[in-house]
Design a protein around this nucleic acid. Sequence first.
DNA 1: CTAGGGTTAG
Length: 592
Amino acid sequence: MRRISRNGIPFISFFAISRATTVRVYSSNHSNMSISEKGKFGVNNNFENVKCLDDAVSLFHQMVRMQPLPSDFDFSKLLKTILTMKHYSAVVSLFREMQKLGIPINDFILNIVINSYCLMHHVDCGFSVLAIYLKKGIPFDVVTFTTLIRGIFAENKVKDAVDLFKKLVREKICEPNEVMYGTVMNGLSKKGHSEKTLSLFWLMEQGNIKPNICNYNIVIDSLCKDRNLDAAISLLNEMNKKGIRPNIITYNSLIDGLCKFGQWEKVRILFSEMVNHNIYPDMHTFNIMIDGLCKEGKVEDAEEVMRHMNEKSVEPNIFTYNVIMDGYCLRGQMDRARRIFDFMINKCIEPDIISYTTLIKGYCKKKKLDEAMQLFHEIFQKGSKPNIVTYNTILQVLFEVGQIGSAKKFFDEMLSTGPVPNLYIHCTLLEGYFKYGLVEEAMSLFNELERKRENVDIEFYNVVINGLCKNRKLDKAHAIFEKLSFIGLLPNMRTYNTMINGLCLEGLLDEAKDMLRKMENDGCLPNSITYNVIAQGFLRCNRISEMTTFMKEMAGRKFSFDATTTALLVNVIRENPSVLDMIPELHLKNNK
DNA sequence: CTAGGGTTAG
């Protein structure tokens, strides 16, 4: 440590010293190392040696034994390394050890600990760390709260996350910055609340904190996922005008949106535009385009793009092959899919669990359960293991073909030997039970999951609400709907549409219309499905004159009857032709 | 060159 003061450098990281010490041990003639030599053994070089958790833990134990103790700076850097390696519980236990040993801690370390808890989906434990800030007199900051908000979103508690954000702003507990806005926007967007994402973006624009490239990328991606491509492109133009240069992520999001909605001409334009801006397509870009082509059934074109990648010296990766395989599976060309499968093996790319799951999904789609199960067993033979998606794929098809017994057996098998069940698996089970009228089994599973405080989200509740409505248990469905805000969940479009459909099925049209107003008030703009569901309700109840009034509102919103509503209307007219006279608009259309 | 955010597969 004397060395530090001699160099006149007030602070040298522990790691620089520890490496220098090591060198001295191995060759005594290096005892008078120069500053430049020491520089070679700086922090980064030392961190290259920490390859796994064991390395990190033994370094930690070396550190705690040192005299004098390395700084809190060094400890935070080590904990961050362990966090990056995704050993979250190790971060927590090493932190506890530090506390026990009375090692000084700082705000950085506490934020890393909170993030570890959040990434383990234990945001409640993250909140309990706040007590340590108070005890040590360390002030909370925007990073602390941003991390917690992200943790709340990770547990799907959208309402809780938004409420905390609002509270922080309203009570001026902390001034949100770009990252905090970005975190809330992204959380909202990923849980399907693109309207709210956009309004937060506008709110940000009006305030003091101006959106940066990340904020633009989040809202552009959100708009693209919500098929609002024109708005996304106009934001691209707007950011260009404001001097915020779009990057490869911006273009990838836009290209993904355009591909998914088949706007290939615009993809071409954007592609040349990005190259003009000296932003070049990367592997993501090509995979996004290949995926888009495959989903549209243009697998041959996708393969052409893959060959083009090679020319641009972007090597196709396993993702590329998996996506093309999925393309053939979607077209039901299982033999071609198997070609691709063998082709990638020839290219020395070992199929992964996603490759297998993709093929299994392809066979399930064609109801070829024998082939699917054969591949399922092959996974074990190859020394690999099916993941939760693989199990979910097979479970879905067993319910689909009505093999309820096999489905239950398969699920039990998974419980004993497979991965830990997740939300998707539980949704599949509940959907399956409800589909076959097994309401009691569904509800006992639902109650068990609620009791165990299992991680749930709004889509999970949508399945339950929908199942109850379809099984004519509207009261129970409504009670659960009312409960959502207490669980910290925000109803989304599907939730409202499901409830409205449930009300219509019971002939409660006025209540359905009330719910329509409620969703508007809650900032969830009704879509075409909402209006069609209500229109179908009126038709089923033969309340034609009310329907015509409703149709006017619907037309004002630029929504029209979809195929289901039209078919229902045709049936009603067939049974009672006088209905036709009550709908003048329709008459005009038919005459044309 | 210590902590928090953005793009592809159910």
